[in-house]
Amino acid sequence: MTIKPNNTSIHCLAAQNLSCERGRRELFSDVAFSLNSGQSLIVTGENGSGKTSLLKILTGLSLAAEGAVLWDQQDIHHQAQSYQQQLLYIGHRAAVKTELTVRENLQLLLKLWPNELAMSIPELAACVGLRKRLSVQCGRLSAGQQRRVALARLFVAQQKLWILDEPLTALDVEFIEAIEQQLGRHLDNQGLLVLTTHRGIEIDPAKLIKLELSR
């Protein structure tokens, strides 16, 4: 499965002195970076340093106490619609409905999210190694398998900016490789990638920016 190189326009995600407060406590302050097409940003930091909060601020779900997130030099909150067109976010909660079968969950993903790959549901299931479990209720799957259902989006996504919170949690080695390949293709196609991970991930060092959150 290849992602056909669609519009190769160059995009840029930038953060300007972001700070984040939880309760009366400051999680981080003065976070700044600039990420261009084809680059990936890895956010590291100990537990509770605000990695997830930072990613949520980048998606626009949360508001920073101070600072701004810019997409193509414009504040994301001033262009929410067009930003969300370009954004794929997968949080650490899988967003998989346990009452529905694998097939129904995948159908939902394809229906709700803009995607341009003409791929059938069984083909997509094959990508994430769940071909034989199409009619199983997701509640009966293991945590890793549920995670695979959520990550299926990476195989049909047309969004330019991917923000992934601990994407590799609970996955087995084989599938981690598949995901790493997919992330590599995304970067080759001039995509942008922001992710947190506590284990190493194979990404071309030339395309990598590291950001460590510390208090």
Binding site: T59, G60, L61, Q81, S82, Q84, Q85, L87, Y89, G91, H92, R93, A94, A95, V96, K97, T98, L112, W113, P114
Partner: peptide
């Protein structure tokens, strides 16, 4: 289960 934040990010 995190679906709501996904729905809120739908264009």
């Amino acid at each position: 289960d995190g679906s709501l934040e996904q729905l809120l990010l739908l264009p």
